[in-house]
């Protein structure tokens, strides 16, 4: 038993060693000495086509759009496999759908602990957001993402090199002969695929829908009484000072709902965008072995951010369903 385990571990060790040796051979002066370039960082999604979709101005087919399609396909595949697994009538699923099931079970337990009887309404949102963001984040870690794309000339710092079947941008280094690039007029790559979490449209869409659904949950649970959370005039006249403070706090709640949108959107975007830039920078500084560690970090961050986004939505929804203010109980 232990011998088999040892063998497996040795095998994995050799693979890591081989990868390091290949990296050293490719990227250092000992071998080919390829210079790893630092790609240009764009904050908005880059357009892949010149003409806008459906003629709407400013609405291009961007690489984050492709990323969105990818994330959708991933979620659909998850749905398909989970559904098939459940239909097969097993007691527990196996493979990827088993992992999804375990994740969902943990999330549902968490929801039940926080939301109580509203679990049935809240949990689907939790699951949706977590699964969608998780697939969007992890798709960005696949090889080829953010590196394969059109070469865009006249924009960037590097020269183009023709490898026959494919072109690439190439860093010839300073003072190389017969390659003259004017600053900012070389070429850069516009990748086909970029994870959709690095597009503010996606994160804002998620945040807006999440905060809206929080309000919807509040109305469903408390009816019009939910509005007294924001327009609190209950004690405005009988207790002037505290009534006024309550009123002010209610208005602040309104502001905090708006700031929730911003904080949701920028948290996800900031983490994922910073992660992508981090991997670029680390890859261009130390191309051998070190990026692998940052890929692992990004794997972790991607999952944590997905769960945090879903969990915060769930928590806010659960809070909205609970009657706010202890005054209600006092009068009841």
């Amino acid at each position: 038993m232990s011998e088999v385990k040892n063998e497996e571990r040795t095998w994995a060790r050799w693979v890591v060693l081989a990868a390091i040796i290949v990296g050293v051979f490719l990227f250092t002066g000992l071998g080919l000495g390829i210079k790893v370039i630092m790609p240009e960082v764009f904050l908005p999604g880059e357009a892949l086509s010149e003409t806008p979709i459906l003629g709407i101005e400013g609405f291009y087919l961007t690489n984050t759009f492709v990323g969105m399609i990818g994330a959708d396909i991933a979620v659909l595949l998850i749905a398909f496999f989970v559904n098939r697994g459940v239909k097969s009538g097993k007691m527990a699923l196996d493979g990827v759908s088993g992992a999804i099931e375990a994740l969902l079970e943990a999330l549902e337990n968490m929801t039940e602990g926080t939301a109580g009887k509203w679990t049935k309404d809240i949990f689907p949102w939790f699951a949706t957001i977590t699964l969608l963001v998780l697939s969007a984040n992890w798709l960005g870690l696949l090889p080829g993402v953010e590196t394969i794309g059109f070469i865009h000339e006249g924009h960037g710092d590097y020269a183009v090199r023709d490898l026959g079947f494919v072109q690439t941008i190439w860093d010839y280094g300073e003072g190389a002969e017969n390659v003259h690039i004017e600053e900012g007029h070389g070429a850069s790559v516009v990748p086909f695929f970029r994870p959709v979490s690095t597009d503010l449209n996606f994160t804002f869409a998620l945040a807006i829908v999440a905060v809206l659904m929080v309000q919807v949950m509040g109305f469903r649970a408390l009816g019009w009484g939910y509005l007294t959370k924001f327009w609190n005039t209950k004690h405005f006249f009988d207790k002037p000072i505290f009534g006024f403070i309550d009123f002010g706090v209610g208005l602040l709640e309104l502001v905090s709902e708006l700031s929730k949108i911003l904080s949701f959107a920028f948290r996800l975007f900031g983490n994922l965008f910073a992660g992508a830039v981090l991997i670029f920078v680390m890859g261009s500084l130390v191309p051998v072995f070190v990026p692998a560690m940052f890929y692992m970090l990004e794997l972790f961050v991607g999952m944590i951010q997905a769960i945090v986004f879903g969990m915060l939505t769930m928590t806010f929804m659960a809070q909205a369903t609970q009657s706010h203010g202890d005054h209600d109980e006092a009068h009841a």
Partner: peptide
């Protein structure tokens, strides 16, 4: 400059609603 534009935002919202339906019906 942030890359936010209304059509894409709407597309994302609609996409999210579709995904919600799929997940709620076939996963959850």
């Amino acid at each position: 400059a942030l890359g936010i534009n209304l059509p894409f935002l709407l597309v994302q919202i609609i996409n999210l609603l579709i995904v919600y339906t799929v997940v709620a019906k076939w996963v959850v």
